[in-house]
């Protein structure tokens, strides 16, 4: 059966309206639930830099009790409003979008992990980091201890690193290698923490082999380029926060 052009146009028009309507409706209806999921996800990522998060964790409660957040600029000054005059919320700062700007103009959120018994004392500063891995973007949260130089914990995520190789940066066992490492060398120069090439055994063996090397962690065998991306990301972002840290140090 051959339909007229007018029929075809009418049919596609109606179809477009119906399909568009259904999708718009679904999008509106699901928006609150989606925002909630994203909020939950962001908060559990932030917390996972300093603690073990599993499916039973009360992330939202824990977050509101233990985390205080501020946004700073590259000079370490607190930023409360953006160029449009809107209030800046640390949790809403899109690190990926900021990454596209020049580093001097970016907003840098800081999530302060407060002491459990004394809620006015800061235990660690959790900083978002962002960069490029081998295939695509990598990101994470680095927790810097209150001594402003040791790493209290890290959590990394990635978009498309090779499964079994570079994707291992997402594993807790790899992230544990960073705990206790220092971003300054013995002379007090900023050197960040470098993941080396090659791997000495994996698991606990990898941690043990590097106990007396405070600025280095064991590498990922077969994922040197991903490790290089992680190193680059850590170095740049830890450096961006140095002015804020020195302000905090002098202030307290």
């Amino acid at each position: 059966m051959q339909q007229s052009n007018a029929y075809i146009i009418r049919f596609t028009l109606i179809m477009t309206i119906v399909v568009g309507g259904v999708l718009a409706l679904a999008n509106q209806a699901l928006r609150p639930a989606q925002l909630k999921s994203i909020e939950y996800d962001t908060k559990s990522q932030i917390l996972s830099a300093v603690m073990e998060i599993n499916k039973e964790s009360d992330v939202l409660n824990m977050y509101s009790q233990r985390i205080r957040s501020v946004v700073v600029d590259i000079q370490g000054n607190e930023v409360t409003t953006n160029e449009k005059g809107e209030t800046v919320v640390a949790e809403k700062v899109d690190v990926a979008r900021n990454y596209k700007k020049d580093y001097k103009e970016r907003l840098y959120p800081v999530f302060m992990y407060m002491n459990e018994s004394n809620p006015d004392q800061i235990d660690a500063f959790i900083l978002p980091v962002y960069g490029s891995g081998l295939w695509d973007k990598i990101w994470g949260f680095v927790a810097v201890d209150k001594d402003f130089e040791s790493i209290a914990g890290v959590s990394f995520g990635h978009k498309a690193e090779t499964p079994g190789l570079g994707a291992r940066i997402g594993d807790k066992s790899i992230q544990q290698r960073y705990i206790g490492k220092k971003m300054f060398d013995a002379n007090g120069n900023f050197v960040s923490i470098v993941m080396l090439k090659g791997e000495s055994g994996g698991g606990q063996a990898s941690i043990d082999a590097f106990t007396d090397r405070p600025n280095e962690v064991d590498g990922l065998s077969g994922a040197t380029l991903t490790a290089r991306g992680v190193n680059d990301m850590m170095k740049k972002y830890l450096d961006y926060y140095q002015k804020y840290f020195s302000k905090m140090k002098n202030g307290s």
Partner: peptide
């Protein structure tokens, strides 16, 4: 629709 549902309920 599936993708939106997944985003909302199993992020």
């Amino acid at each position: 629709l599936v993708s939106e549902l997944l985003k909302a309920y199993n992020y």
